[in-house]
Design a protein around this nucleic acid. Structure first.
Lengths: 181, 181
DNA sequence: GATTGCATGTAACTAGTTACATGATTGT
DNA sequence: ACAATCATGTAACTAGTTACATGCAATC
């Protein structure tokens, strides 16, 4: 049982999903490719933590709808209070930032602009998702409601994207203005 | 040449360092163990991107002081404008957050408290480093000054730690107050 | 006609972690 | 006594990525 396996179980507490849907849902929390997820789901099934129902489709490939079992929930419950490993962040941009003086300001600017574009799209996506969730919850947000986890994570994703954009803007302002051709 | 290799070259633009020092310096930007770094340094040396001077020490193990070569700098220069890969973040806490309703509020609180402790220590560390760097730079911060990269990265580390703590505090406030025994 | 989305899976590879190995000094 | 810091390295393992494989529908 590695962390991703627990993560997949965690996602399944939100309801039954296909491997493909799990793969998409877990991305913002734990990046993983389908080639890593499918074998883990097979292991989880063998261990009795999840089960699946095969669903045949006509115009799309057949699929397997996974749900978490009682055993799986027990497994999650004992995992949560365990020591949480330190978050890992690996960002090539930060390595480039360290030696950015090696290049001209124009190159530095396009570096930052690419990052701004990336996080603007993320911000938009997460803001929308948060707005929709808020509509659904309709003011009824409490620890016990099933959308609670989702809510605090979306709020985080939004404020995180905003912080990223602020930093980018600040750095951009520090770069010397290049008199354009 | 993988990203970590470029990262090591990037760190060496700040001056000559031992493998051990490089390992420590790169941690906040790109987590890596010494067992990954030493073999990469050997490869970089064989490729001519770095060179080292062996230094014998009496009361400590001998060491190798690495510096970046002209070729290494050229390599960095061509790397910077390349497409930057998306940052990867993997945080077990977020997976736990998604299914936190499975546990009691007390467990959720200690989860958050552990994270608060972690980032309070980080904030303290980075704030100190930033304050020292500001003293050194003494108002003279510009794109071309060698401390520029360090400066923008430390500023980021500080504001990032603050944002993390804010989110933790906000979540903590949402958790139901447990009437203690 | 080419790409994207749905949907699953395996094979081959690279990246990253843990453990083994050594050894003196300093602090608890 | 025991752990931590400095300092390097290798071996064995796990985790994660890229590539291969299939196939139909809709969109561009």
């Amino acid at each position: 049982m590695n962390t991703l396996s627990y993560g997949l179980l965690a996602m399944l507490t939100g309801g039954p999903r296909t491997g493909y849907e799990l793969m998409q849902q877990i991305q913002p929390l734990w990046r993983a490719k389908h080639s890593q997820i499918y074998p883990l789901l097979a292991k989880l099934e063998q261990s009795g933590y999840v089960r699946f129902v095969p669903v045949a489709q006509k115009e799309k490939p057949d699929k397997k709808i996974y749900s978490i079992t009682e055993q799986g929930i027990a497994q999650l419950r004992q995992w949560i209070p365990n020591t949480t490993s330190e978050p890992v962040k690996r960002d090539e941009l930060l390595l480039k930032a360290y030696c950015v003086s090696l290049t001209d300001p124009a190159a530095a600017k396009s570096l930052i602009q690419a990052r701004i574009a990336l996080f603007e799209s993320k911000l938009e996506k997460y803001s929308q998702m948060l707005a929709e969730l808020k509509k659904e919850l309709d003011g009824e947000l409490s620890f016990t409601s099933p959308g609670f986890g989702n809510y605090i994570l979306l709020q985080r994703a939004v404020s995180n994207s905003q912080a990223e954009l602020e930093w980018c803007g600040w750095v951009y302002g520090l770069l010397p203005s290049t008199a354009s051709v």
